[in-house]
């Protein structure tokens, strides 16, 4: 197992390098001049040129890249060009927590909803329960998160006044009950699509596992149905579903931009959208890099969990 972990960790290095180049290029090759944006409409050509020189925007791209990469390695993500004096690191770290909490919460809802329902659908395939769950998951897949979000707000916040429509509470300063009151609607709207998808994957995977020879063998040993499901089938089903959970986290981070905007949550998605509006390229670069690194980290964790769950992987 140790060898497997080590090898997997080593593959992170080239991935991160490539990610950093791509992030840098995307930001620098998109049209629009950040210096012109910073100085506003009244700026003279000379002013803009001076700012260009000060920010190093006239240097060749490769020089700019290495300067930026060197700074990043030292933990310096640069300064915002829109909000004077704000370091990008500070901006990201204040917006980091809401997004991560939102993603984790929405994925928890997804998993708790999708795994048992997917297993139930597989166990009772062909029954009324199965058909009902199919309709439900079809609905989930075809419903965009902002539509569901607005629907939920209309129903639960405006009509029945059960939950607040927008806003965010920090669980560590305002307490968890407040956090859940504010975050439940966003988390459900973010997680629902993926739970429909995960449910289908769980069902398909479970059906495949249930028709396998080792399940037949387990039945021929007289293993009770419960143990067949929980001990023999669940772990093997999970092998497929772990990948789907990883994808879910990643798409939750991406989808957070829309949901944060809709519910007024001060997360990284919100920061990202604002920064794009202001062409605050240092912040865009920083957030994109952070999200990319987060993806690399999630994939790493998925692979390590895989190694724990499937003894056949460790050996190779």
């Amino acid at each position: 197992m140790r060898g497997y972990v080590l090898r997997r960790l080593l593959t992170v290095i080239p991935t991160v390098l490539i990610v950093s180049v791509v992030v840098f290029l995307i930001v620098h090759l998109t049209p629009g001049d950040p210096a012109a944006m910073m100085l506003g409409d009244d700026a003279t050509v000379e002013d803009i040129a001076r700012l260009h020189a000060r920010l190093g925007l006239d240097d060749p791209l490769i020089v700019q890249y290495f300067r930026w990469a060197g700074n990043v390695l030292r933990g310096d993500l640069g300064y915002s060009t829109a909000v004077t004096g704000q370091s990008v690191w500070d901006m990201i770290s204040t917006h980091f927590l809401p997004t991560i909490l939102l993603a984790v919460y929405s994925q928890l809802i997804t998993i708790l909803l999708a795994l048992p329902l997917g297993m139930l659908a597989a166990k009772r395939r062909g029954s009324l329960t199965d058909s009902a769950l199919s309709v439900f998951s079809m609905l989930g897949i075809s419903l965009p998160s902002f539509m569901l979000g607005m629907g939920l707000v209309l129903l639960l916040a405006v009509q029945f006044r059960l939950l607040p429509a927008t806003g965010y509470k920090n669980p560590f300063t305002d307490g968890w009950p407040a956090f859940f009151r504010y975050m439940s609607l966003p988390a459900v709207s973010l997680g629902f699509i993926h739970s429909a998808y995960m449910m289908r994957m769980t069902k398909a995977s479970m059906l495949e596992v249930l028709s396998s020879d080792y399940i037949k063998m387990a039945r021929s040993k007289g293993t009770p149905e419960r143990a067949i499901l929980m001990k023999h089938a669940f772990r093997n089903t999970l092998l497929t579903v772990i990948t789907v959970i990883g994808q879910g986290f990643i798409s939750a981070l991406a989808g957070a931009a829309v949901v944060e905007r809709l519910f007024g949550i001060p997360g990284m998605g919100m920061l990202m959208v604002d920064s794009i509006d202001k062409r605050d390229y240092q912040v865009i670069q920083g957030i994109t890099l952070m999200i990319a690194l987060l993806n690399v980290l999630i994939n790493l964790m998925i692979d390590l969990i895989y190694g724990l769950a499937d003894p056949r992987i460790r050996l190779k």
Binding site: D213, Y214, M217, S220, K221, H232, A309, P311
Partner: peptide, 16 residues
């Protein structure tokens, strides 16, 4: 009554 199957690799649970 007990049974043994043709393919032992697929008949034994790979994760147990």
């Amino acid at each position: 009554m007990a049974m043994i199957f043709q393919d032992a690799l697929s008949s034994l649970n790979p994760v147990l």
